[in-house]
Write a protein that binds this DNA or RNA. Sequence first.
RNA 1: GGGGGCGUAGCUCAGUUGGUUAGAGUGUCGGCCUGUCACGCCGAAGGUCGCGGGUUCGAGCCCCGUCGCUCCCGCCA
Length: 598
Amino acid sequence: MHAYRTHTCGQLRAADVGQTVRLSGWVNRRRDHGGLIFIDLRDHYGITQCVIEPDCAAFSTVDAARSEWVLTLTGKVVARTPDTVNRDLPSGEIELRIETAAVQGQAQELPMPVFGDHDYPEETRLTYRFLDLRRERLHDNIMLRANIVTSLRRRMIEQGFTEFQTPILTASSPEGARDFLVPSRRYPGQFYALPQAPQQFKQLIMVAGFDRYFQIAPCFRDEDGRADRSPGEFYQLDLEMSFVTQDDVFAAVEPVLAGVFEEFARGKTVTKPPFIRIPFAEAMLKYGTDKPDLRNPIEIVDVSDVFARDDVEFKAFKKKTVRAIPAPGAASQPRSFFDKLNEWARGEGAPGLGYVTFEDEGGNLVGKGPIAKFIPAAAQAELVKASGIQAGDALFFAADKTERAASLAGMARTRLGRELGLIRDDEYKFCWIVDFPMYEWNEDEQKIDFSHNPFSMPQFDRDAFLALDKGDRDTILGLKAWQYDIVCNGYELSSGAIRNHDPDVMLKAFEIAGYAREETEEKFKGMLNAFRYGAPPHGGTAPGIDRIVMLLAGEENLREVTMFPMTQSAQDLLMNAPAPANPKQLKELHLRVVYPEK
RNA sequence: GGGGGCGUAGCUCAGUUGGUUAGAGUGUCGGCCUGUCACGCCGAAGGUCGCGGGUUCGAGCCCCGUCGCUCCCGCCA
């Protein structure tokens, strides 16, 4: 007989009755009836009830065992009597009658019980992650993650992509997030950087002629965390293809994502390809964000013109961008509902959130509420027409400079959707956001910045682009890029582009963003050089693995789908990182620590 | 870097207007219990009320500071 087990704890059934078997696992639960002890033995595969009576030689061993001790139990599989069958347990028709018992590992009093589905503070869960990972919810989430990754790999390989590894120790990149730096021992004062993404490598792989690349790639960015953004590191399904247009990339990615979501959606509906494409500008108008949750039926409309009318006397909205957010059925909400939203808007830095409710009076929709009296019937009729609202609905207004009005309207849309219960939670709704602006105006530094990915190809004639100069500011800020995001249920799942593979256009693109040609040459030497020896047109994208798993697991926090996450403040409480380096290490690396003052 | 929430027994939490000895559940330990599966019953131990300072006759509670976790803003090509 095997030293530890003949079966797993999830394996034994009525058909195994009579066999002598050996199980190993953790004590999930111990029930002591004095003369009779039940042990629920748990391993990765399941739970089997084991029972022992006092006349057995192993009794004292089992009697001493406590929760989470690791035991090896040997004995006969017996059928439970009909009245003691446990229907909730796959192994519930049988139990193991313990004959011998061995303790493989004891457990101290637990800082966090494994049994049960109670919530525990993040700090405890992270410090004792190995215990948390034993618990059903996290254990299942991590297995789901593994299965999703396997499925993604299979789907990519089936589409003719090849997985390549790229370096972890590489060069720092300008633009983008803060880098993690790794000091060089051999070159005093010089540093490697961890890749923010394998961006340049995958483009070099295309130049090298490999045609279709993918990788489950670790990415490192030294930025602060959020619920949907791990601090420090995360994983992407990084992919790149040669000789493709935007449509080709979409056609390659859609079946992979739709497929993997179908596979793991557990009954929820998934958008069928092709996913709809929403231009960035339209998304900002209709949804007030570039990552709209399309499960929310509310669509924002611009009503600046209505409030600009001479017969509308509401001064607060004059000469501003005014966006209207229809709130279906909200007219019947109590006054407190509107007050709460107004208070929330103030908290977001807005002057407030005006509203008009609409009711049917003799076949006409009539506006009610604090600001309705400033809007004459003709203007109200225009609001109704523009927003498509009906009797019993309300219309909220966000008024400000265009960008702020759009953003506030977007947040109000999300909030209203949630509070009015308009968002179905049994759907995964995908869309592409396309036609991102290439550049944006940096108000603080009074300069032009890359809006998103500096490696994207501008949607503009090559010669005309090369001829742009400072005087063409409006043209430059109006430029679109071959740049696209995939959004699902309000989460940005993926960002990608058709790349700029033309060294002249690339130098020009960086020059517009304020980088001297020499600087760009220096920073991107490897890639620019490669582009001068025959570069194919190419493009790709990189769906975030962690967010995909989070969505499919129905979680709202990445730590629930990450095996060993850091805290929001980027500490690893289990391994105790970061930690001071010892003097010998520092000396070898030619480093001296200068602590911040105060 | 900034704002909000939280921090009381191993764990989850309650704790009144600032007032006697800070409670409950769970876990732990001891006793009883042969069919439980959140087993049950009896009993016990267990507290730097995150930390430091202040106000007060008196602080878990009020004030100031600080630390940690978390959510958000900034940041995230």
